[in-house]
Simulated scan of single mutants.
Amino acid sequence: MTLNDKGELAIITAWCGDPPDGVAVYRHGDKLIDQAVIRAPAALAVAPVTVSLENLPDEWSLVEGDLDFRKDQVYKVTAYSSKARVSQGGTNFTLESKEKIPSGQIMIQHHGNDDLRFGTDVFLSTTDFTEIAKHYC
């Protein structure tokens, strides 16, 4: 997660090979509940790509669900590829995450040896995020 230049919550995703063809958003409850499915444009250019979850760019389309986020609700967002049948690890967030994410930084979660349900927030520069993403290729 990051903030775009308008201060909106946005997903940032990087990839190797075929680009993702969409983004899925889930609500946390007893289990993950579908919140929204967003279709990516047919031809994504160079990675990484940033997409506002508060004001979708014209070339992205909401396929199902909604992007009406509620205060104090935890969500998970992840990019996916139906061709590869995989999704990226995803990031958990709330509307309050806007206050936590430093300008120009990307929030990911580290799931180490902690007992935290949603992991520990870690903030990276775009360069560091892109370098770390290469290790998953």
Rank of each mutant, 00 (worst) to 15 (best):
A10K: 00
Q73F: 05
W15D: 07
I106H: 05
M1K: 10
A14R: 03
Y136R: 04
I106T: 07
G29V: 01
E99F: 07
A24Q: 13
Y75V: 05
A14I: 06
A133V: 07
G29E: 11
V23P: 02
R39S: 10
A14Y: 05
V77Y: 09
C16R: 08
G104S: 01
R39A: 15
V86P: 08
I101A: 04
A133N: 05
V37S: 05
S82G: 08
A10Y: 03
D114L: 02
I12A: 03
L44N: 04
T94E: 13
N55G: 12
V51S: 01
E54C: 01
E59P: 06
S52L: 00
R27M: 13
P20S: 13
G65A: 11
H110K: 09
F69L: 11
T2C: 12
N92Q: 04
D5V: 04
T127M: 14
L53Q: 00
K83D: 01
N113C: 08
D5R: 04
R117K: 13
V63Y: 14
R27W: 07
D30E: 10
I38K: 00
W60D: 00
A45F: 09
G7N: 07
I101W: 01
T130E: 06
I108G: 14
L67A: 02
P57D: 05
S125W: 09
G119L: 12
D121S: 15
E54P: 03
I101F: 05
L44F: 01
H111G: 10
A45T: 06
D66G: 14
Q73Y: 06
W60N: 00
D30Q: 03
K134A: 13
R70A: 15
D5C: 01
F93W: 03
I12H: 01
S103I: 04
D128Y: 08
K100V: 02
G17N: 04
D114E: 15
L124H: 04
S52D: 00
N113E: 14
K100W: 11
A36M: 07
L3M: 05
G90E: 06
L9G: 03
N113Q: 09
D72K: 08
L67M: 07
G7W: 08
A45P: 03
N55D: 13
C16E: 13
K83R: 10
E64S: 15
F93I: 02
D128C: 07
D18Y: 12
Y136P: 09
Q109E: 13
E59L: 11
D21G: 07
V37A: 02
H28T: 14
W60E: 00
D34P: 12
I38N: 00
D58E: 11
E64W: 11
V74A: 06
G104W: 02
F118H: 15
C137Y: 14
A14T: 05
G112Q: 03
P19C: 02
Q109P: 04
E131Y: 02
T120W: 07
